[in-house]
Amino acid sequence: MIGTAIRYAPLLILAALWEAVTRLGIVPREMLPPLSTVFVAFVGMLRDGSLPANAAQSFLRGAAGLAAAIVVGFLLGAGMALRPRFHAVAGPLVQAFYPLPKTALVPLVMIWFGLGDMGKIVLIFLGCLLPVTLGTYNGIRGVDRVLVWSARSLGARPREILLEVMLPAALPQLLTGLRTATAFAFLLMVASELIIANNGLGYLIGSLGDNGAYPAMYAAIMTVIALGFFADRGFAALSAHLLRWRA
């Protein structure tokens, strides 16, 4: 407990600095509202429901896109790792897709789906697909074949080998891919909602900024950052638990 406090103390120091610098007028308040004012605006948005409502919309879309990416990405990566023919066909497509900055797909998604939910979900799906695919592919490829041979000689059947040997052995790489995908989900959620601005946390940030409600805008931004941070922390804890057998 104390260890965590000491570890994150610098953030508290920065927060104190923020408050001091703005209260003392070193930085103009229009540019950087004091932390206390931001906090008041934050509480206000909680009370009037704007923050929870938009957060829920963002979360649902992000989760849907991420979930779809996990399912499809896993199948894609596993297929490429286990079937050379499939790898020969799908590999170049994945490689071609990789360097494309996924935010470039926002206008495309707007053309296909207009301004609704589906577009943002598809965007997040496309953006999270690659990390999951690569993580699965590398994970399964990296499984030491003597593990598979041991299982075979102990009498395991192909499906059992896939689920009971390959999956746990590939788990570290898989989880790394998922962690990256989660970060991408947040990134594309914010990007799509800032650009296709009709609801969600990104929209909230943008519209508050347009209306000059800067303390509330800062509060919304901090909320998004905090959500992304805790999501990553949660994922790290989950990974540590699932991988506790590792050295």
Binding site: L11, F186, L194, I205, G206, G209, M217, I221, D232
Partner: peptide, 26 residues
């Protein structure tokens, strides 16, 4: 190390793109 590490562990996984309106303001 003590001072910068928590800042990096917050900045690394989060959608820093959310700061865009702030940077537009500044």
């Amino acid at each position: 190390g003590w001072f910068v590490t928590p800042i990096v562990s917050v900045g690394f996984p989060t959608p820093t793109l959310a700061f865009l309106p702030i940077f537009m303001l500044w």
